[in-house]
Design a protein around this nucleic acid. Structure first.
Length: 262
DNA sequence: TCTCGTGTTTCTTG
DNA sequence: TCAAGAAACACGAG
């Protein structure tokens, strides 16, 4: 389920490896996660390198080593964890970095994730050219308004999932934002009347999700749609009406027909 | 056995 | 050339 907050949570799971060198690398180099990465160079460079720092931006993570950078994207089912030194990688553990104190594991059953790799200490282009963080001052109401006009015909649900403008938003966060902002998910981008309200809601949902899920994988408050959206028969925590689930913008979308009448 | 899915990329259509 | 939708990717869960 990795969206913004979950990605931040997973990133920190590799913190025990900070400052330590990689003694051995095990990986399934042929898995599609590694698209185009030369296996021999990958292994040679990472072996002996020291993990210096890490950061997350949206759904993308960067792990900086003293002689290379590693980019990780979790796709739909990826996860990071640490394991004991005698860890034996399983079928879905596609990248395992053995250090003296910790074993860093990246697993992904569905192989929708992605691994990026660049030799050297410079941050790669895919990191330096990223769009503004949704909580940064550069994500402005004006920028949001311009983007909505550019995507004027697309349903707002689909627009919120566009990572080029909303890095880190995924399916449940988009539904949560639209529910809190009382916007029907099919509303065309160009027809969003209260852009300021949408902007404010995007920021508050991101901030709260990071605080709650990003910190320790706790559940968001019970009065969020989040806790009611997963099963058929769930009801709106605001008005009690049964929630509707339907495919909008190619994704399963959950909303309240009364609160989000459009 | 069949359907579905918290993501992204590529292809197709308009 | 751009925007929007559909299909594809791969596999476990229900």
């Amino acid at each position: 389920m990795p969206e913004l907050a979950e990605v931040e949570y997973f990133r920190k799971r590799w913190d025990p490896g900070l400052g330590a060198r990689v003694a051995r690398v095990e990986f399934h180099g042929m898995a599609r996660l590694f698209r185009g990465i030369p296996a021999a160079e990958f292994e040679k460079t990472l072996t002996g390198s020291r993990l210096v720092s890490s950061a997350a931006h949206g759904k993308q993570m960067i792990f900086r080593f003293d002689r290379a950078t590693l980019g990780l994207h979790l796709g739909m089912t990826g996860e990071l964890r640490t394991a004991p030194p005698d860890f034996v990688p399983g079928k879905h553990d596609h990248l395992v970095l053995f250090q003296k104190g910790a074993t860093l594991v990246f697993s992904d059953p569905r192989l929708f994730g992605r691994i990026l790799f660049q030799k050297g200490r410079c941050d790669p282009d895919w990191w330096t050219n990223r769009p503004p963080d949704l909580l940064s001052p550069d994500f402005t109401k004006a920028a949001l308004a311009v983007f909505l006009l550019r995507r004027k015909a697309a349903p707002i649900k689909a627009v919120l999932l566009m990572q080029e403008r909303f890095p880190g938003l995924g399916n449940w966060m988009a539904d949560e934002i639209l529910w809190q902002a009382r916007l029907h998910p099919s509303t065309p981008g160009g027809k969003v009347a209260d852009v300021a309200r949408l902007w404010k809601t995007i920021r508050s949902v991101c901030r709260d999700a990071l605080r709650v899920i990003g910190a320790n994988w706790a559940d968001p408050p019970d009065d969020w749609l989040f806790n009611h959206r997963w099963r058929d028969g769930g009801t709106c925590p605001r008005c009690g009406l049964e929630l509707l689930r339907q495919d909008i913008g190619g994704r399963t979308t959950c909303w309240c027909t009364r609160c989000q009448a459009g």
